[in-house]
């Protein structure tokens, strides 16, 4: 018994890819519904902020240089999209599969173990973030708001960002007693990040304590990275943001698996 309790590290084989296959098979039927938002959303946002708010703000200072407001927020929209895709996939969609459809129960009676199922689900959330990012980048490119080839690095970054928010989401999925409770993490975690991660205005305009707090939020680092890549302005300091996202996803990934085992293995 003691041996098993110490064994908290995820036990994962490449079998987790079976979950990706299963989910992609479902997506082949529903892709229209899943990927319409990443195509339409940036158009709506860019219209609203570009034609509406943009007329008031016009320019904003980014690293000492003035950039148009639309160019400032376009990368943030990509980062938010990465967050949303993975987070909603691994909260609501995963919860439905786990709780209502009992899909995990059925798979746990096969050679796959729970760790692999959860890994497959989280990686799937990241894959969805990645696909949505490619679609969204295609749309934003029409507005000439991305600097290539640097912006291409946003694609692998989207996968890492997907792992970050998918793992956090999976922790909530392991904890919530019922599906309505997801409103709490959305209200207390996602919405504040959406607003206060350097998305629509520079962090420097915030009071000092809020700036420090913002550094804890993973979206702050994702926005910083996506914005730098989109504008083609890479610098060494970004490596810290990348490391932060890496360790954040590793930590929450292990936590998600431990919490899921506690919930489902009884």
């Amino acid at each position: 018994m003691a041996v098993r309790e110490m064994n908290w590290l995820p036990q994962i084989s490449p079998r987790f890819c079976r979950i990706l296959q299963r989910n992609s098979q479902v997506l082949r039927r529903t892709w229209m519904i899943s990927f319409l938002p990443p195509i339409l959303e940036p158009v709506l946002y860019l219209l609203a902020f570009g034609a509406g708010l943009g007329l008031l703000v016009r320019e904003i200072s980014y690293r000492g240089e003035p950039v148009s407001y639309v160019a400032y927020i376009a990368p943030a929209l990509i980062a938010i999209n990465i967050m949303y895709n993975a987070f909603f996939e691994n909260t609501f969609a995963s919860y439905v599969r786990m709780y209502y459809q009992k899909t995990y129960d059925a798979i746990m009676a096969t050679p796959l173990n729970l760790d692999e199922i959860i890994t497959g689900e989280i990686v799937w959330g990241a894959v969805k973030s990645l696909i949505a990012t490619i679609l969204m980048m295609a749309v934003i490119s029409f507005f000439r708001l991305l600097v290539y080839p640097q912006a291409l690095l946003i694609v692998p970054l989207a996968f890492l960002g997907g792992l970050v928010f998918g793992s956090v989401a999976m922790c909530f999925t392991a904890l919530v007693p019922q599906i309505e409770v997801f409103n709490f993490p959305i209200f207390l975690f996602i919405t504040p990040m959406f607003l206060f991660s350097g998305t629509f205005f520079p962090l420097e305009t915030l009071p000092h304590w809020a700036q420090v707090l913002a550094q804890v939020l993973p979206l702050t680092h994702l926005v910083a990275l996506v914005r730098a890549l989109a504008m083609g302005k890479l610098e060494g300091q970004l490596l810290l943001s990348l490391l932060y996202l890496f360790f954040f996803s590793a930590g929450t990934f292990i936590l998600a698996i431990v919490l899921m085992r506690r919930r489902l293995i009884i």
């Binding site: 296959q21 098979q25 459809q101 059925a106 096969t110």
Partner: peptide, 19 residues
């Protein structure tokens, strides 16, 4: 706990992939 996201045939083939 059949997979309601898949058809009858897909249920069997997908389950086979787990093995």
């Amino acid at each position: 706990n059949l997979d309601p996201d898949l058809t009858v045939f897909q249920n069997l083939v997908t389950f086979a992939s787990y093995f």
